[in-house]
């Protein structure tokens, strides 16, 4: 340990050599994609639980035991979340083109749409009429939508950061990775919701 320390004193550098880029892919982009693979697998495990209850055991799905899922409200909510992906895309394109107003307005709209989604989702929980401990179907419903809601929350946090930085003017057409990378995560959250909505509410 001491040897390492002594060496550190002697080998004084101003900084490390610049790393070679052995791939065209941006490290941040690749990291986010790998993280999303991990996230997909978490959802995969929850879908496994769903699969076992509904397919392997062949238990009845909603409407079940007098409990129903509000397909219509959730459908409207889906539309809200999907439109947030469009506004995000607008913001990202604006960032690339140097359109400051488009970036700011796009980010703000996206954030508000996402927030509305989460708000409606929580409202749905309050009015849905059954609890996770009523039956396994309830556990799966709350488990999957709750897991997704948590991801919306993480996504909103990222969007909030991007929005604040957008308003402070930290992004330029050359430097907009800070918009792109969290944006990918938000798109993932949206796509995941389509899968959740289809399997839980529709099928």
């Amino acid at each position: 340990m001491e040897a390492a320390a002594i060496h550190a004193e002697h080998a004084h550098h101003h900084g490390p050599p610049e790393a070679n880029r052995s791939s065209r892919v941006e490290p941040q982009l690749l990291g986010m994609l790998l993280f999303i693979i991990s996230e997909v697998m978490v959802f995969g495990a929850f879908f496994t639980a769903y699969f076992f209850i509904r397919v392997v055991n062949g238990d009845q799905w909603f409407p079940f035991n007098g409990d129903e899922l509000p397909k219509l409200v959730a459908g409207v909510n889906t539309a809200i979340l999907l439109s947030s992906s469009l506004t995000l895309h607008w913001a990202q394109t604006s960032a690339k083109n140097g359109n400051r107003f488009g970036l700011k307005a796009g980010m703000l709209t996206t954030f508000l749409l996402g927030f509305t989604f989460l708000f409606i989702q929580i409202n749905e929980y309050i009015h849905i009429g059954f609890a996770p401990h009523d039956h396994a179907q309830g556990s799966i419903f709350y488990g999957l939508t709750g897991l997704h809601g948590e991801h919306v929350f993480i996504g909103l946090t990222l969007l909030a950061i991007v929005t604040v930085r957008a308003f402070r003017g930290h992004f330029t057409p050359e430097h907009h990775g800070g918009v792109e990378i969290p944006g990918i995560y938000w798109h993932f959250v949206d796509v995941m919701w389509i899968v959740v909505y289809t399997t839980i509410y529709i099928v």
Binding site: V56, N57, P132, H133, A136, S139, I140
Partner: peptide, 12 residues
């Protein structure tokens, strides 16, 4: 109080 593994409540 979820029921993922409570077979009495339909868990597996």
């Amino acid at each position: 109080g979820f029921n993922f593994f409570d077979h009495g409540q339909g868990g597996d």
